[in-house]
Write a protein that binds this DNA or RNA. Structure first.
Lengths: 343, 343
DNA sequence: ACAATTATTGACAGCGCTACCATCGCGTTG
DNA sequence: CAACGCGATGGTAGCGCTGTCAATAATTGT
């Protein structure tokens, strides 16, 4: 297919340049660094772009510049609504930028994560957002040699690869347990599912808070590696009271479990909070409308996504944050399920 | 930067070809059409690729071939867990393929959808998955001129752009109402939020089922364009009983609303199903564990995602489906909330 | 007023890959 | 035995854009 210099119909940068009466390279600069153009040319190119409806060819741009405008996002789960909120934050803020999001999920497998990171490295993303701080040594090495800004989200810890946006699951959990203890409860059960690293740290917070009050007892703990569901909450709770009938509170590592516990209590006609207090984690929307309303730890997931993508984009464009670690904190949302009955 | 023919460290297809003792073009064919190679060369190239750890440059490939290996996915919401399930199906099946997913959400704005489609068209995706069948005329035109396979998902209807994978919201809703009517309920309320096209069709099913029984009454209907939440379910229900105190059942366009109604009933000590039956839509996981367990319409969301991506990939590779419209149906999950009390 | 400096602009070459067509070798046929 | 067909392979020439650096125009200091 011998191609004429101007294949009719095809709008390339050359066509734009021709119409604007500038060289192609000047037209190119219009997109990459408009400030370098004189006002006159900038306007001429601008109107030429609009008149021709020019759309840049991203593949050609990537090939020539050795850069892409893709920001990779690695999350463990698409089902967990916690990540849905984070993603919403990421997408909302990325849409007004030139960058596009490449999303992958690892299904909580660190090997899958490693594979994904390797894939990303080969494609030279402009930036990367990964979940958590517990990468394998190999994954960590990949992240460190990836010459682009990297944000670790969902939690904070020592030695960030680059930037870190999250909160302390340990502190949040510790605070929740402290609250329950303040209510005079002593036999506080722990219900955990999935038991990924962040859930582990919530357990650590629980354990230490209980130990500090000299109330820790392994019989209060029921966990499983099975993924979380509401139904599972009921099942784990059944296991717990079978093992330890004298509990007076239950701390659940997430709200789905907490809802399942509430339902199971209703089924067994156990009064909440009369006999048993329930506290969840994440503060999903339904927690406030449950009957009784359920206490939870609010985490700022949408903001986490927003901040992560914003910081990554800023870093890509040379505006490195003064402080690479951003702690978004948490709020204990105290509701009926963990306080004295008002009625 | 005068570049030596073999810039050390950089593994290009040329390097692979050299090691394998073939021409670059033959190495290229190894990826695109391995069957065209003799067995001997195929093996030589294969081992060279592995030895060098060659990773293809996708930008160069896209530029030279005028094709990409990106499948665009356009959904209205990231928060709605219905789409989370669909996406999981899409991602799960795309991972073993060569294609990568480019996800965008429109936040239920048809203008945003139009914008996204325009963007996709410019980038020549290998395939496209869009939500629903109610595109604007402009969007529809874009889809029709996009020379790649297109799948419309979530519902089915007449005149597919190309392929269609979903189910009839109208039928599902009609079936749910028929079930409630069979239980002897007569004053069935309708609670709707968001009121996107698919919810509209659920309303149509409700209305027609009620009219067929000569029981339709506008006072039974409460809707809002506000996005769905559990809390909203309670609010809408409160509006409904204020307006129409004699209702004996509530049909909710989704499960979050249904859960909110259940909570509100508990709060007001209205017996479910004794005084009021509740039926939801989607059959999210928690519906089965609620107390009482909640009747819902199960939709095959994960399968919808899987089928959509599989059909699109097949179509890209020339294996067009015999039947472009796939109805995945629904199942009415009848539970305590809409049946006579057993106790 | 003239050199020195800075803001704009352009020419050239090439990013890594693949489409197209030519070529080669082999078995088959009249 | 020449001609033919076909599968396997290679050569050439870009895909549309941008990095580098040189060239030019505008601005400033002494």
């Amino acid at each position: 297919m011998a191609r004429k210099p101007t294949k009719s119909g095809k709008i390339r940068l050359t066509e734009v340049a021709k119409l604007a009466g500038v060289s192609p390279i000047t037209a190119s600069r219009f997109f990459r660094n408009p400030d370098a153009l004189s006002l006159a040319k900038r306007e001429r190119v601008d109107s030429a772009v609009k008149e021709l409806g020019y759309v840049p060819n991203l593949a050609a741009r990537a090939l020539a510049s050795h850069r892409t405008e893709v920001i990779g996002v690695v999350i463990p789960s698409l089902t967990n609504s916690v990540f849905a909120d984070v993603l919403r934050g990421i997408y909302d803020s990325s849409e007004q930028s030139r960058y596009s999001i490449q999303l992958t999920n690892t299904r909580y497998s660190i090997l899958q994560e490693e594979k994904m990171l390797r894939l990303f490295r080969a494609q030279k993303p402009a930036g990367l957002i990964v979940t958590g701080i517990n990468q394998t040594a190999e994954s960590r090495a990949i992240l460190e040699t990836m010459d682009c800004p990297v944000a670790q989200i969902m939690e904070i810890g020592d030695s960030p690869v680059d930037m870190m946006i999250g909160f302390s699951h340990y502190d949040a959990s510790f605070a929740a347990i402290s609250h329950i203890l303040e209510q005079g409860r002593r036999r506080i059960g722990f219900l955990g599912a999935r038991m990924d690293p962040r859930v582990q740290r919530r357990f650590d917070g629980y354990r230490d808070a209980m130990k500090a009050a000299s109330l820790f007892d392994p019989n209060l703990v029921v966990t499983t590696t099975v993924p979380t569901t509401v139904t599972l909450g009921g099942t784990l709770f059944a296991d717990l009271i079978a093992k330890t009938p004298d509990i007076d509170a239950v701390f659940c590592v997430n709200d789905d479990l907490a809802l399942g516990v509430l339902f199971e209590c209703q089924r067994r006609q156990i009064s909440v909070p009369g006999e048993i207090a329930i506290v969840g984690f994440n503060d999903l929307e339904f927690m406030a409308s449950a009957v009784p309303s359920l206490t939870s730890v609010r985490t700022n997931r949408y903001e986490m996504g927003r901040h992560a993508i914003t910081m990554v984009i800023d870093a890509i464009e040379g505006r490195r944050p003064r402080e690479p670690v951003l702690d978004l904190g948490f709020q204990l949302m105290i509701r009926e399920s963990s306080t004295p009955q008002t009625a």
